[in-house]
Each structure stands twice: as C-alpha cells, then as structure tokens.
Computed example of a mutant assay.
Amino acid sequence: MIPGAEPCPCGTSLSYAACCRRFVVDGELAPTAEALMRSRYTAYAMGSGDHLFRTWHPRTRPADIEPDPALTWIGLDVVDVVDGAADDTGGIVEFRAHWRSGEGSSRQSGTLHERSTFARRGGRWLYLGAETRV
C-alpha cells in the first residue's frame, strides 16, 4: 500500500494522506474545531505526541501528553458539534472514541465519551479541555 493511502483513523471516508496527515505530520492549521479534534484523535491513534503538544492550549496543557502505547484507538464517532467554524472564536465537539488494550484473556475495551472545548487563538484552533460523559 502507498504510504498515506490507508483510511484515516478519524473515521472520515478519506485516506490518511488526504485527511489528517497534513495536520498531524505537516503542521498545517486545522480550519475548524472538528478538524482539530479529528486530527488529535488521529495523533493519539498514531502515537504523535508532538501534534498533541502543538494543539493543546498552553494554559491547560499538562506536563506529560504522550499517548499511552498500551491503548489502541479503534474508532471515532462525532456526536455533536457546536460552533467551531473557520470564523468562530470557540467551539465544542462531543465524541466517542473507542479503544482496546491487552491480548487474549487480558484484553479490555471501552469508550471515551467527551465534550471537548476549543478556542481560536492567533488564527489557530487549540484544545482547551473536556468534560467526560458517561
């Protein structure tokens, strides 16, 4: 398979090269809060802590943001999007991210359900934080 031709982890029908790679690897700015959230999910799925660091608001960013290598992110469902368009200053994206870890009898799986808040600062979208849902 041609590098980047695989499906994008964020769940769109686009290839990784045509979807999130430009944000995660090339550093292009996401045009919307939803595009940033999808690229951040992809960064977690691919283990790209650099993208997570670059896109986390410095006011709320923790000291350690490296993705957990024990988790495999296996799917993303966007539940709701409020604002977050290219001309907005803020936005909210609610999503469910599905994961699994372990092998054999120790295999576990679950879903992270969050309502994440984003702000546009200096023309770029940044992740502020999230409210975890049950």
Rank of each mutant, 00 (worst) to 15 (best):
R96H: 15
T132W: 03
E131C: 00
D88R: 02
E34R: 02
V24W: 01
V24I: 10
G91S: 10
F95T: 02
E34Y: 12
W99I: 10
I65Y: 04
Q108H: 14
G110R: 00
R61M: 07
H51P: 09
D77T: 13
G84E: 10
D88W: 14
P67A: 11
E94G: 15
A17G: 05
P7M: 07
R22H: 05
P69T: 15
D64H: 03
V82F: 09
Q108T: 15
A45L: 10
S106W: 11
I74C: 15
G90C: 06
C20R: 01
F53L: 12
S105A: 12
D64I: 03
W99L: 00
T32R: 07
H98K: 09
P69W: 11
I74Y: 09
W56M: 07
G75Y: 05
A5N: 11
L71Q: 13
Y41S: 12
D77M: 11
V79R: 15
T111E: 13
H98L: 15
A30Y: 10
S106N: 13
F95N: 09
H113G: 05
F95G: 09
C10L: 05
D80Y: 03
M37F: 00
A63P: 08
L112N: 09
T60I: 04
E28Y: 14
A18S: 07
V24K: 03
E94P: 05
H51N: 01
L52D: 09
A70S: 15
E28T: 07
S105W: 00
G27W: 10
A119V: 01
D87P: 01
